[in-house]
Amino acid sequence: MNENKINDFINSFSNEILQESGVSTEGTETSKRLLEEVENRVVARLFLEMVALLTPEQASRVTKDISEDDTDPAKLMESMGHEIPEFHIRMAKALQSLRGELIEDFKKLTEQK
């Protein structure tokens, strides 16, 4: 998967969350900025979700390889993913959970306002 594809996916995923929350993301500069912020938030969370699935040994390897070698983080994370049981299912659940959580929060905050 190249950089563009992951950007497309995150963009699409974030857009769906905003639409589901009843927030339009088309047209204005403000809405573009909003989408960008949601994308940043999704990326940060997904990163942490992935890191949280690593075993202590794997976490140690990531730290060591990234700090000492000229390692490609994407390749490293890919190899880690293959070692984690049901990694794809866990990540799918994390996505689902994040989606539901953000939508609920957005709706709640919108209602409060």
């Binding site: 490609d72 983080p73 994407a74 994370m77 880690m80 293959h82 990694f87 794809h88």
Partner: peptide, 11 residues
């Protein structure tokens, strides 16, 4: 994003 791209490549 770099990490996520790698992780998603595995899924």
């Amino acid at each position: 994003k770099v990490f996520i791209r790698g992780g998603f490549d595995a899924t």
